[in-house]
Simulated assay, not measured.
Amino acid sequence: MKMMQKLLQKLKTATVIVLISVFVLLSSGWTSTAVAQPPMDELVTGYVSKVNVADLGRAIFFYHELLGMEWDHSQDTYRWTQFFYPNVPGTKIGVYESQPTGTGEAALTLVVNNIEEASDFLMSRRIEVSPIQDVGGGVLLAFFKDFDGNSLTLRQNGW
C-alpha cells in the first residue's frame, strides 16, 4: 500500500511539473507552428543566389553586359547588387564584393529553351563554355564561369 502511495505521489508531482512547463511555454509566446503555417512552397516567392566577387565593377560588366541580365538597383550597397531576367520573376543573382570563394561543386543554373543558342550567345561574348552534355532524361548541360571562378550552368530540360 505504501508503495502505491509513493507511486501516486510521484505521478502527481510529474503531472504538476508537466502542467507548469506547458503553462510557461505557452505564456512565453511559444506555439507549435507546424499546423498553423502554410507549406514552404507557398511561402517562397523567389530566390536570390549569392556569389562573392573580387571586383563589383567587373561583376556588373559580366552579369549585366555579357549575360544581358537586368541590374536591380533597388538593393545596391557599396558592396552588393543584384541581377535578374525580367521574364523569370522572383529569381535573382546577388553579387557581393568580398574575398572570392568560387562556388565549388555548386553552380548557379540558368534554365534555357535552347542550349545551343545560349551557348553560342555566351561564346560570342568570349565566355568559355564547356561542350554540351546529355545527362539523361533529355536534360542537356553546359558549364561556364564568371571572372571570379563562380560556376554557372546552362540547362535545357527534357520534354
Score class of each variant (00 low, 15 high):
residue 122 L to F: 03
residue 103 T to N: 11
residue 95 V to F: 08
residue 90 G to Q: 01
residue 107 A to P: 02
residue 113 N to D: 12
residue 88 V to R: 05
residue 91 T to R: 06
residue 99 Q to F: 15
residue 80 W to P: 00
residue 110 L to D: 03
residue 103 T to E: 12
residue 132 I to R: 03
residue 109 T to P: 00
residue 116 E to W: 09
residue 81 T to S: 06
residue 142 A to P: 01
residue 83 F to C: 01
residue 78 Y to W: 15
residue 109 T to Q: 08
residue 141 L to Q: 07
residue 134 D to A: 02
residue 85 Y to W: 07
residue 118 A to I: 03
residue 83 F to D: 01
residue 105 E to L: 14
residue 129 V to I: 03
residue 90 G to P: 04
residue 101 T to N: 13
residue 119 S to W: 08
residue 112 V to P: 00
residue 80 W to Q: 00
residue 102 G to M: 13
residue 89 P to Q: 05
residue 124 S to D: 13
residue 122 L to P: 04
residue 114 N to A: 00
residue 104 G to I: 09
residue 114 N to S: 02
residue 128 E to G: 10
residue 125 R to K: 15
residue 83 F to P: 00
residue 119 S to K: 11
residue 105 E to N: 12
residue 131 P to Q: 10
residue 127 I to G: 10
residue 110 L to Y: 04
residue 139 V to A: 11
residue 139 V to L: 10
residue 98 S to P: 13
residue 130 S to H: 09
residue 115 I to W: 04
residue 100 P to Q: 02
residue 85 Y to K: 03
residue 108 L to N: 14
residue 110 L to T: 01
residue 108 L to C: 13
residue 95 V to C: 06
residue 138 G to K: 08
residue 135 V to L: 10
residue 130 S to N: 04
residue 123 M to K: 14
residue 114 N to K: 01
residue 131 P to I: 07
residue 107 A to M: 07
residue 98 S to E: 12
residue 106 A to D: 14
residue 125 R to G: 14
residue 137 G to P: 06
residue 121 F to C: 07
residue 94 G to P: 09
residue 78 Y to R: 15
residue 111 V to E: 07
residue 140 L to F: 05
residue 126 R to G: 13
residue 113 N to G: 11
residue 87 N to F: 13
residue 127 I to F: 08
residue 78 Y to A: 15
residue 88 V to L: 05
residue 128 E to N: 11
residue 95 V to D: 02
residue 119 S to V: 07
residue 138 G to W: 03
residue 138 G to P: 02
residue 116 E to V: 11
residue 78 Y to K: 15
residue 138 G to S: 02
residue 117 E to V: 05
residue 141 L to D: 06
residue 132 I to Q: 01
residue 97 E to N: 05
residue 98 S to Y: 15
residue 124 S to A: 14
residue 91 T to A: 06
residue 94 G to D: 07
residue 127 I to P: 09
residue 86 P to H: 05
residue 109 T to S: 01
residue 92 K to H: 12
residue 123 M to W: 09
residue 141 L to E: 11
residue 137 G to E: 06
residue 133 Q to E: 15
residue 109 T to I: 09
residue 87 N to R: 09
residue 106 A to L: 13
residue 134 D to Y: 04
residue 114 N to W: 01
residue 82 Q to I: 03
residue 141 L to R: 10
residue 129 V to C: 04
residue 139 V to H: 10
residue 128 E to V: 12
residue 127 I to L: 10
residue 122 L to G: 06
residue 88 V to C: 06
residue 114 N to H: 05
residue 91 T to Y: 09
residue 123 M to R: 14
residue 89 P to V: 04
residue 125 R to Q: 15
residue 85 Y to F: 09
residue 90 G to D: 01
residue 89 P to E: 06
residue 87 N to Y: 08
residue 92 K to W: 12
residue 106 A to I: 12
residue 101 T to D: 13
residue 108 L to A: 14
residue 109 T to D: 00
residue 117 E to N: 13
residue 97 E to Q: 14
residue 137 G to Q: 00
residue 106 A to N: 15
residue 119 S to D: 01
residue 132 I to W: 03
residue 103 T to C: 12
residue 98 S to G: 14
residue 106 A to G: 09
residue 91 T to G: 01
residue 124 S to P: 10
residue 104 G to V: 10
residue 103 T to M: 12
residue 125 R to F: 12
residue 139 V to S: 10
residue 81 T to P: 04
residue 79 R to Y: 13
